[in-house]
Each structure stands twice: as C-alpha cells, then as structure tokens.
C-alpha cells in the first residue's frame, strides 16, 4: 500500500512546471469603440494544467485590462463562462489547454445567438426569459403532511436526476442551429428545465407540456445533438427533449 501510493504521483500534477507559449485569438468587441467585432491575437505563457480561463485571466491581468468576460467559480458549477472555443461551446474553466491542439492558435469568441454586448459577454436576458417561461418550479396542489417531506422513491427521484444538473450556462441553447436562426425558439436549456419538473413525481401540472407544444416549442428540435455535445455537465439534452416530445404525445408520465 505505502509504496503504491508514494509512487502514484499524478503525471500532470501541480508540480509540473513545463511552460509553453500559446497564441490565443479572441473576437473582440468594445462598444462605443469598435463598429464591428474584430479578431485580436495574444501570446501567453501557460502550464499544461492551465485552463482556457487562466489564459484569459493572464491576458486581462498582464496585457489588456479591457478584455471582458464573465466568470465566477472557476470549476464548472456556476455557469458564467460558456464561450466558443475553437468553434465548440465549452466552459473556459473546464477546458484544459493541454486538451486543445496547441500547435495551432486557440480561437475564442462569445456564444452565438444572443446579442453581443462586449468581447465575450452576451445579453443573457432572452435566455433567462425562456427559462422563466416554462414555469421552472414545483407545481403541486396536494399538501404534504404538516412538517413532513413529500415521499418519493429512489427510482422516481432517479427519473429526472440528469436534468437537475443544469447550471444554466447556455452552452446548449447557443450551440443550437435552430436557435441561431430563430431566437423565439425556447431552446434546449429551457426544455431541460421543463423536463426536470415534468418527470418529477411530485409535480402535478401539465402546464409545461402545453407551453412546449407550440410552434416555438419542442417540435422545432431537429435532433442535431449539438446541445448534448456542448453540455459541460454531461446532460443527455437531446434525449430529454425527445422525452418531453413523448410526454406531449402520450401525456405526463
């Protein structure tokens, strides 16, 4: 046991200090200064364990303080830093530099389909509006026993476990080609959050099925699976949308 543990230092542990230079090309847009977005190159010295967020911080803190992006927790749970990295939606704080092809520049731009505000920041209001529209809260008229929890079997709880993981980062919705061309479409994230309640055995409402049985609802989904590939939480988004379609056709489970 003892030697086994001592020998098993992680190959890419915190003590590796091999740095290398990466070129990061960022789509910049400073309102009031730039009329159109423009691409700007930065060279940064990075460690293999660094994340794309570290590269952005290095640029902001050491080269150009005006570079603007959202971030908070820096480990993939707050959902602030979804962006397009080499053409794919990801969280900057969950994308390790070493997992990208560093022989080429790293291209970073804001997520698509939402109004661009500044650099990597978009207006999130239309996204949250869709979320709020699906009534994303438990609707149950029956009263639980005074001072007691509602009973739910582990199987019933497991039924909607996947969609409870959503962090509302918008990586899925802003990777959806339908959403790019039709901003009225609810989009995958709102449907995922409807799914979370539709399949919760404690919920007693059909209202979300009516809301999503709409021309801007689930039927717009063309199952391109971009959303599932984009989800940093590994949620089976396309499957959840398919399950909501089934529930509309066959009634709430």
């Amino acid at each position: 046991m003892s030697t086994a543990i001592a020998d098993r230092a992680p190959a890419s542990g915190p003590e590796s200090i091999q740095t290398f230079t990466v070129t990061v090309i960022i789509r910049r847009f400073l309102p009031g200064i730039d009329l159109e977005p423009r691409w700007e190159d930065f060279d940064v010295e990075m460690l293999p364990t660094d994340r794309v967020l570290d590269a952005l911080h290095k640029i902001k803190w050491e080269q150009d303080g005006s570079l603007t992006f959202r971030r908070s927790c820096a480990h993939g749970i707050c959902g602030s830093d979804a962006m397009r990295i080499n053409g794919r939606n990801r969280l900057a704080c969950k994308t390790l530099i070493k997992d990208l092809d560093i022989s080429k520049p790293i291209y970073i731009e804001a997520i698509k389909g939402l109004p661009l505000e500044k650099d990597l920041v978009v207006d999130m209001e239309p996204f949250f509006d869709s979320f709020r529209e699906v009534q994303p809260f438990l609707i149950a008229n029956s009263k639980p026993k005074e001072g007691k929890e509602r009973v739910q079997s582990p199987e019933d709880r497991a039924r909607f476990d996947d969609t409870t993981k959503c962090i509302l980062c918008a990586a899925c919705t802003s990777s959806c080609p339908i959403f790019w061309t039709d901003g009225q479409y609810f989009g995958p994230a709102a449907i995922v959050n409807a799914h979370r309640f539709i399949f919760d055995s404690r919920d007693e409402s059909n209202v979300r099925l009516d809301i999503l049985d709409d021309k801007e609802g689930v039927w717009r989904c063309r199952t391109t699976f971009n959303c599932t590939e984009a989800c940093p939480r590994g949620i089976q988004v396309t499957q959840a949308i398919a399950e909501v379609k089934q529930a509309i056709l066959r009634g709430k489970p």
């Binding site: 809260f137 438990l138 639980p144 929890e149 509602r150 739910q152 079997s153 582990p154 709880r157 909607f160 476990d161 409870t164 309640f197 919760d200 404690r202 919920d203």
Partner: peptide
C-alpha cells in the same frame, strides 16, 4: 416542499 430533489 419547494421542490428540492434530495436523495431518498
């Protein structure tokens, strides 16, 4: 009661 999905 507000809807939190606790493990069961």
């Amino acid at each position: 009661n507000m809807g939190l999905p606790f493990n069961r």
